[in-house]
Nucleic acid binder design. Structure first.
Lengths: 145, 145
DNA sequence: ACAGGTACTCTCCACTGGGAAGTAGGCACC
DNA sequence: GGTGCCTACTTCCCAGTGGAGAGTACCTGT
């Protein structure tokens, strides 16, 4: 085989890279936090409100229905799925209390709390710079027209 | 209409929330950085290698093909799309030089660089705690079996 | 006995992102 | 001089992911 097409070369590179990717912990975490609902749940449980400074409250532990209400955009499927994933990763604990209707409480672990701190940094950035981003979008769109 | 079903109430809550959501800058940003490729491009351009401590290099500006190589997992479609979005948001600049085959250079703006700093915090967290997460997953899976 | 609440699960569907191939347009080799 | 290659994309098609909404199990109050 004399020459490889660029497509072939790219495919090969990707394969090597994927193999390397699978073994990279940081990348795995990135896939985890690159999930909209993960960050929102972290924010909701991490005492600061997850809803832009309105429904505040230092609620450290929350019930399924509370989370569902606070993150109103989430589908029940994704809420359950995401909570399970976070529990699996040791970021929160799930406690079932066999009360009248069962009560399930979700609470951040120390690990989850520490990740929440990192996410707060992103949130601060957003609050500080989001207006710049929005202005940039406006001028960009204006030029594009 | 005497009673609303819980489904109806939920639907209503979601609508109000969505309307409010649209006006929330932090949430908009969250949608932006909750994109796998956005963070990876930020990492690649932000001088520290985006590839787990291997292909290091303080390359501040990169060409399309360089990015494509370094983030080998990305499809060309998504790379283009993501770069355009980041340019629109004022996080990076796109410079076309009409050389023999056109050369396009992408470079972080100060704004992009500052976001990169925040993302580094997440990266540090990952490097510090990812082994705990992995261990948690293993024990969780073991119990589930 | 029947509506209601909690914490889910299930099914269907629309949209998103991936893969691969195509495009423009200029050089370069034969 | 035509075939082929380079970069930086765009386009098309398809599979997988997430959302909407209904269904489930179990108990309670009236």
């Amino acid at each position: 085989m004399p020459t490889l097409t660029s497509a072939q070369r790219r495919a090969q590179a990707r394969q090597e890279y994927d193999a390397f990717l699978a073994g990279c912990p940081s990348r795995q975490l990135l896939d985890r936090i690159s999930d909209k609902w993960v960050t929102l749940i972290l924010a909701a449980l991490g005492d600061d409100d997850g809803s832009c400074g309105q429904v505040a409250g230092p609620a450290r532990a929350m019930r399924y229905s509370e989370l569902s209400r606070q993150l109103a955009g989430v589908s029940q499927k994704m809420l359950t799925q995401t909570l399970r994933a976070l529990e699996r990763d040791g970021l929160l604990t799930r406690t079932v209390t066999p009360t009248v209707p069962v009560t399930v409480r979700y609470e951040l672990t120390d690990l989850g709390l520490s990740l929440h701190q990192a996410i707060r940094a992103i949130k601060s950035w957003a609050e500080e710079h989001m207006d710049e981003v929005i202005r940039s979008r406006e001028t960009y769109d204006a030029h594009a027209t």
